[in-house]
Amino acid sequence: MVKNALLSLLSIMAGCVVWELAIYISSGNLLPGPYSVMKALVELLFSQDFSRHVCCSLLIFFSGWFIGIFCGVITGIFLGFFEYAYRLGLPWIALLFPIPKIALLPVFIILLGVGEGARIATIASGVFFPAVFCMLQGVRSVSPKLIEMGTVFGLTRAQQLYKIVIPSTLPSLFLACRLTTAIALILLVSAEMIGANYGIGAFILGAGAMALMDQMLAGVLVLSLFGLILFGLWAALEKKVLYWQE
């Protein structure tokens, strides 16, 4: 594990060296090198203004993501567990899923006003559908042999749901969490670039407009690190929760 971590670090460092060399050789001022970006990042981390941007993004991200994943998971389990719900609900899910959710931002602005509400709703709508599909698939993939075992031993439908179905779908839940994290990040930045005063997306857009390329890339790096931390958290949590899959 230590060897893998070292290899990963070496790979990143090698990439940074190549990037710095490319900047040096090209003698261009279009893009800053890794050193400038890191320097800008360190300055920003101690900046109160940037902290406000980050806090605003975190609030919107987690609010939208949590609402979307909660509603999506419940809906997915419901549609998967009850046959009539599946037959009635699936056409609507299939119809609404392909709509690019960022296109709904103006709709949410009209409904909820210009503010965090519209951006949270956009993220929630983008997270909802993948969560539904993951959980729906998870429920419908539960081993029929285990359900049969539960029926033979007299488990009620409710007992089958929480003793067999829900634990069986936990891998699908973690898949949903990983997929929707990436989607939520994309929607967060996109939504913040449209009329937001605060947020990392708004910061990146503003820095780009003022040709502060090192700050702009520092903002992008913050997003990348945020995503990396979240993925690491999911992996650690999954290992702990899905102990039987060792």
Partner: peptide, 27 residues
């Protein structure tokens, strides 16, 4: 009053041995 022993065991992997046996007392 009917119980079943399956060819492929059909134990719940997320339950330990005690909890798996407890499934037999569900009703």
């Amino acid at each position: 009053t009917i119980s079943y022993v399956f060819q492929d065991y059909r134990l719940l992997p997320w339950f330990n041995v005690y909890e798996n046996v407890a499934v037999g007392l569900a009703r």
